[in-house]
Design a binder for these strands. Sequence first.
DNA 1: AGAAAATATATGACTTGTCACGTAAAAACT
DNA 2: AGTTTTTACGTGACAAGTCATATATTTTCT
Lengths: 175, 175
Amino acid sequence: MTEQVTIDADQVRARMEREGLNIFSRLPAVYAASRTQGRKFLDFAGGGLSIVEWRTLWDLVEAGPMTIRDIAAIQRADHSLLSRALPEMRKKGFVEMQRSSRDARQTIVQITPKGRAAFDQAAPVMAHRRAALRDVFTEEEIRDFAGFLDRLEQFLRIPVEQLVADKIAGKDPAK
Amino acid sequence: MTEQVTIDADQVRARMEREGLNIFSRLPAVYAASRTQGRKFLDFAGGGLSIVEWRTLWDLVEAGPMTIRDIAAIQRADHSLLSRALPEMRKKGFVEMQRSSRDARQTIVQITPKGRAAFDQAAPVMAHRRAALRDVFTEEEIRDFAGFLDRLEQFLRIPVEQLVADKIAGKDPAK
DNA sequence: AGAAAATATATGACTTGTCACGTAAAAACT
DNA sequence: AGTTTTTACGTGACAAGTCATATATTTTCT
C-alpha cells in the first residue's frame, strides 16, 4: 500500500498567482477566451459563420478582391488555413475564386452577394463587441496594448539560436 | 469569358495596417507565434517535450502534487486538455497518477524523477527565453502588459447577451 | 437515510493553427 | 534560350484548444 500523496493548496494558489505575470503562459488562455467569445457572438448573430469565415468575409468587404496569400497576410496566418477554408466558403456561396490571368499561380478571391449578406448579418453584432471593448479600454490604452503586441510579436520572431547564443555569450547580462 | 477582377494593393495594405489596432484580430497571430517559438525552444533543449508537457512538468515542480483540475486551473485551460495529455506523460514515465483516497473522484498527479530530469533539461533554455523577454520589456511594462491581459480576460468573460443588450439599451453610449 | 445536485474525470467531435512537402508557374540569372 | 530559384497554392500529419455528454463519487437537502 502506497501512502497517499498530499496536496499543498497554498503552493498551488501561489503558483497560479505567480503565473499571472508570465506573459507566455497567459497568451493561450486569453486567446482561447477571445476565440470562444467571438464564436458566441457569431452564433448570436445567427449567420452560421465560423471565426475564419467571418474574418475572411470582413477582409474581402473592406479591401476588395485579393489573392489567398493577401488574405493570409492580413490575418497573419499560414496560407494553408485559408487554402482549406475557402473551398468550403465557395461551396456555401460566400465567395468566388478564379485563377489570375496575369499570374496563373494565383487564385483571386472575391465576395459574392450571398457572402455580403452573411457579412451584413454578422457585422452589427461584431461591431457591438468592439464598441463594448472601447467601454473598457480607452483609445490610448488600446494603442499601448497594440504597441505591446507589436513588440512581443517582434520578439517572437527572433530565432532561438540567437536568443540563447546572446545569453550564453553574456551579452547584455545586466540590461 | 468573364473579365478579370482587379486587386487594389493599396486597399489591401491599408486593411492590414488598420487591423493592427484590432486587439481581437491580433491575438491569434501573437499566440500562434508564441506557441511556435516555445516549441522551437523545447526542440532546441532536446528533451522531446511538447508545450503542454512542459507547462505541466513546470507546474508540478513548482507547486508539488495536485489534481488534474488544479493543473487545468493554473494553466487556465479546459481539464480535458490535461485529461488527454497526462496518460501519455505517464506512459513516458514523467508522472505518476493515483486516485485520491480522500475523494475517489480525484486523480492526484505527481512528477517522477524521470519527469524531473526532463524538466531540468528544458528549464535553462526556457529560462533564457523569459530572460530575453526581460531585455525587451521592463519590469514595469510587463506588469502593465499583464494588467491589460487581466482586463481583457475579464471582458472576454462577459456573456454575449449582456454586452449586446447593454448596447441596444443605449447604456453608456458615449463612454 | 434517500433523493437531488454538484464535482472530477474521460472521451468523442470539432476548430484553429502550424510545418513539411509536392507541384506548377513565374522570375532571375547565366 | 535554358537553368535555377522563387513564389502560390494544395494537402497530409500533427498540436492545442474548445464544448457536450457520460459516468462515478461526493455533498447537500429534505
